[in-house]
Each structure stands twice: as structure tokens, then as C-alpha cells.
Design a protein around this nucleic acid. Sequence first.
DNA 1: TGGTACACTGTAATCGATTACAGCAATAGC
DNA 2: GCTATTGCTGTAATCGATTACAGTGTACCA
Lengths: 372, 372
Amino acid sequence: MRSVPKIRPGRTARRATRATASRPAGDSETHMPTVREIAAAAGVSVATVSRTLQRPEMVSEETRTRIHEVSRRLGYTPNAIARNLRTARTQLVIALVPDISNPFFSEVIRGIEQVAHENGYSILLGDTQGNPAREQAYANMIAARQADGIVTLTPRVPRIALRGGRRPLVNACEYVKDPDIASVFIDNVAAASNAVNYLLALGHEEIAYVSGPQASPICVDRERGYRTALERAKTRFDPALTAIGDFSIESGERAVERLLAERRRFTALFCANDEMAIGALRALSGHGLRVPEEISVVGFDDIRFARYAAPPLTTVAQPKGELGREAMSMLIELLQNPGVPARKRVLAADLVVRGSTAPRAAGGADSRGGSR
Amino acid sequence: MRSVPKIRPGRTARRATRATASRPAGDSETHMPTVREIAAAAGVSVATVSRTLQRPEMVSEETRTRIHEVSRRLGYTPNAIARNLRTARTQLVIALVPDISNPFFSEVIRGIEQVAHENGYSILLGDTQGNPAREQAYANMIAARQADGIVTLTPRVPRIALRGGRRPLVNACEYVKDPDIASVFIDNVAAASNAVNYLLALGHEEIAYVSGPQASPICVDRERGYRTALERAKTRFDPALTAIGDFSIESGERAVERLLAERRRFTALFCANDEMAIGALRALSGHGLRVPEEISVVGFDDIRFARYAAPPLTTVAQPKGELGREAMSMLIELLQNPGVPARKRVLAADLVVRGSTAPRAAGGADSRGGSR
DNA sequence: TGGTACACTGTAATCGATTACAGCAATAGC
DNA sequence: GCTATTGCTGTAATCGATTACAGTGTACCA
């Protein structure tokens, strides 16, 4: 409680301890000092050095400043690996993504990174390129204690080999049924249904759908939303109006090419993500079909480029940053308190109306009505 | 050399060693087995267990299979932290980027990840959000031995505190003058100059320039390339035709708005990256200026969305994946052989001509000639 | 004056692997 | 038959921190 520390004469004398203390001087260039050497140089024990860094309040101010000074002079940085070994935590978290160059994922990652950073964690990037073996390899790093936890943005959730209730895993974006797995996601059925309702409200009746890979649960959900909306509006669902892509721009382009080649009639197009929608825009304009005058297009995700498409894309805005932040928060909660049950958290996704949608034209244009 | 192992009777008997061997059974659910327990269960020493995993050829086939079997049964995964501490390597490499959601960076990262993975390294993502303090914080992880090396995609190269010649750092994309720092980059002067020459060859004379942040060396180089090309063509360089952005889509849009508001005359526009070019396209079309009929636009980088812009963007294609791969290869070389001198490697960047550029219109349209 | 609490500090065990060194049999070489 | 080599294995030191436990000296209280 006193603010003036007592003077303790015997302490300041530098006394060298034990054998490990000194090193040959010529070595100094390549050498990283350890806690032992700092302790020796400051005339204290390793415990005291460690404590000045971990719990300064336990060390007298005098000793503390001396140790700080010595550390600075010798350029001491505690070895994180040694600390990790002792404390059994790495402050590392794996972010598992199918493809980092997809802007949707990279924005979710940014959210993850943000919360991670605020809490002293770093992100280990696991770009799996859709390869299940690589997903598993990254997951195994948890068992090897190379990382503390994992956030997956992939549809498959890898087995993570950790005994006991511990399962430091959060799934983001993709809904995972297993109640033991924490996840954050949007209601894809409702969001898709919402988007299609909007098209129906604009008077569209033939609404085509460009789906993502069928293996992905979110695609199943979005398709269900699409069908639900049609059914509720008593509009016929025509399987021939669905084309399957793989979420890439090119696949969206090809999907529309296919629909047009088959001479399907539609005045609106709902795409399971923005990149395919952007590909679709290109294919449509390539065939002389004007958007939105002849065909309305709706995407999904609201990536940064969506508003700069021509025309600006109407799309379902996923809260990308929030998905990442929330997922990371949940993971931190799991890490700090392994007992807590896995939570499921649903975030809102709103339709953002831009220039790629318009009321159905009076004449009822369709894909056969192209100007060329 | 014999393929049939001798039978050594005394060996197969399981003999428990020391005290650490067994654990209470009730603990088994939460417990991760260690090398000690595997050794005890297999009736061998820890050295032998470690060797079966690290250098199988040193261990007899009989012992080996036994240990493998025990490991599998008990679900043994070696603790990577302990290994890292002992071997003083983490097999982790930091990738320092200003912004992961920028598609240019994420594609370079993908290249890095690829080579890293092939060589048994993982990537620690350092998204700095342009914050020098965070750059430094990530760099300090090298000193703390949390990572083995670092690839920077940022203009500033952080000090990394490691004694001795060791400097496990490679800079990618941004040219760094310091000859002690390895880097991979394109010749930005030549590439920019090339792009502007192309515009000149199309007959353009008033060529505006949207620059990135002046602090970035690559921007300085691209601007120099722009000026060099103009000078060589005996075309006047007009400082009023340069607008400064920050590489974001929005800043490109604003830059063009500014040029138009100032009623600058230009028939072509060179942008320091694709995102700003995409913003520029939007601003131009917003003012009723047609691209490429009235104004030609050239970007830089060739990100994935460039070819899907409206019109498809003519741009300087950087070899993004190759930049990343080469940078990572150089880093691995540095890590394996700390003695090698830092190399500078220049990759080629080619102009990709798409729909956003055309010969100067006969009438000599300029920004005042807009249709509204 | 003796006892208790408090504020610091030191000793040594520990985390879980890797690996230098040594030991021991069986074989090879002479 | 004696030494050298080879093949396999074990003992124990080591990497560099953290931290439980055990002092030690001073202050405070009765």
C-alpha cells in the first residue's frame, strides 16, 4: 500500500549465478538471450524475470526496472514456443476456407482476424482448395497442439481428434446439423425465399435458378427457399429452369449459356452467389439480353464487387464481417470455458435492391426474344 | 541387409518403466497420450518411439510395427510444440498483407500457400490493415520464434529483431531497395510505361492517371513509367491529369469524379490498379461517357473480376500466383541455408488487351463531350 | 517479545518431445 | 579366438520458459 519502496541494500549487487550464466563474447552476434542469461545479468533468479513479464505486480519496482533495462539492453524476447509448451496453449487458431481468393471468404476471414487480434490470437490460414485430405491435415494440427482451435468455413466438418468433451471448433457460414458443433450462419432458406418473393412481386413468373454444388448444405437450403417461394405463390416449379454451377464466375456464365442454348423461357434469374451472378450478367449481355429491362438478376452474398457490376447487382447481403466476428467470439468462449454447450447462432441477411432487377416488362420478354 | 529380422526373445515382453507410465483409467477420456506412455505400453524407451516416427530405418521392423499399433490404439499424436521447442523450428511462416480482402493479395497468398504446403510449412495470416504497429507485432513473432520466416506484401518492411546474419524475410510485389532483403516483383516502370505506350499507339494524347498512395514504391514506379512513356512520345505531362486514390474501388470512382468536376480533358485513363479502374468505369458511365468509344481505360494487376467488368478491362497482368510461389521458394531457400545472399527476382508482366480500350475517336471526344 | 502477516525472491519440477552418447548382441574380419 | 563393425536400443541431457512451494526479512500487533 505504500508507494515508496524500501531500500534493500544487499539486492542491487550483481552476483553471477551458476554455470549457465556467461557465453563466449564472439557468439553474441548470432545469439538470442534466454531468461537464464537475463536473470544472471540482472542478478536475480529466472522466476523473477519471468514474473516481471507475466505478473509485474509481484515484483518490486526496483527489481522490475532493473530487469526491464537488462532485457532491453540484451534484446531479450521470451521464446514463445517454450511458453506454449509449458502453458499448453499456442494462441493460434486455424481458419479453414475452401478458397481464400473468393471475396466472400476473405471478408469473413477479416472478421475472424479482427476478433482474434483483439483477444491475442493469431490466425493460421488453411486454404484447402476443396481437398478433404487437406482439411483433415489442418484439423490434425489441433490434435498436435499446434493450434488451439479451428473455425471452418467449409461444408464438411473434419473430425478432430481430441479426447474428452473438448471440441474447439466453430463452423461459420455453412449450417451443420450436429448439435455438438457450434455454428454461426444465416437462414438460407428464408433469405433465398425472400429474394425470390421480391422477383415474384415484380411480376416475374418464369424464374430460373443457378445453383452451387449440390453437396453444399447452403445450396440445398437456398434451393429450398427458391422452391418454397414459388410454391407459396402458386407458381409452377420447373426443374428445367435450374442450372448447376460451382460458385465460380465462369460456372455462372456457362450455366446461363446452357439455359439459353436449351431455349428456356425466363424473365428473372436467381443465383446462389454473386460471382455466378456476375458470370450470368456477362452471358446475358453476350446474347444481347438487357438487364434488367428484359431479364432481372439477383445474386447472393453482396461481395464488394456486386455494387460495381453492370448493372449493379441486386443481392442478398450476408453480414460477412459479423459472421467471422461472431464465429471467432464463440470459439474464444469455447476455449476459455470448455464446458459450455455448442451454440447455434443465426444472423440476419437482407435483400439489397440495386439496378439488376426491375418489374417484368409488359411484353413479357424471354430468352428467345433476344435482339440478335 | 537381411530382410528377415532375428527373433530376440527378451524384447517382446512388456515391461513397465518408471513411475510416469500408467495413469488412472478414469482420466482416459480427457487425456492425450505422450511419448512416455506409448513407450511404456510398447515396452520400449521413449527414444525408440521417437525414432520410429522420425527415422524409421533405425528401428527394427518388429519394434516398429508394435509401436505403430500401440500408437494407433491409444490415439497418439506427437505434441508439435514440444518438437518445435527441441528442434527450434515451427514450420510456420507469416504472410503479411495490408488487406486480405483485396483479390490481388489473396491470389498472391494462394501462391505462397501452395509452395508452403508442398514443403511442409503452414501460413500464419498477418492482415495489418495498413497499421505499422500491427506489422511490427507480427514481425516480432519471428523474434519470439513463433514463426520461422515472413513474407511481406507491404511496402514497409518491418525491422525484425534477430541477431546474426539471419534475416528470414522475403518481400513480394513491392520493390525494396535494401540489397539485404530478398524480393520478388515485376518491373513496374516498364509495365506501366508499356500500358501507356499502348494508349499512345491508339492515338490518345490526353491520358489521365489515377495513382495509388504516394507512399507506396510501386506507385512511384508506375507513375514514373507513365511519365517516361509520355516523354518518350514527346507528349506533354500534365500534373493536373493525375488524381490520387488509395487502391480501393471507391477511391477510383472519386478520383474520376474529381477529374470530371475539374473539367479536365482526357480520352484515356490509366489506373494504378484494377479496383480503382473498376471504380473509374462506374464514374465514367455515371456521367454518360462511353468506354471505350469516348474514353479508354487501362487497369493494373488483372484480378479475376477484371475480365468481367463492363466492358472487360484492359490491364497489366501481374503473375500473382507466381509472385507468391517464387517468394515462398526464396524464403524456404533462406531458411534452409541462412548463408545465401538475398536475391532480387523480376518477373514479367504483360498487357492484356480487352474491351475497355479503343483507338481515339475521330472527333476527339473528351470529358466535356458527355451526352448529358 | 513473540507471533503472524506480508512482500519479495529463489529452487527446482515440469511441459513433451529430440538426440548425443553409451551399451550390448550378433556378425564379420583376421 | 579375438577384435571391429553393425544394428538396435536405452539413459539422460536438453530446448526455454512457467510456477508450485519454500524460504527470508520486515512490519505490525498484542
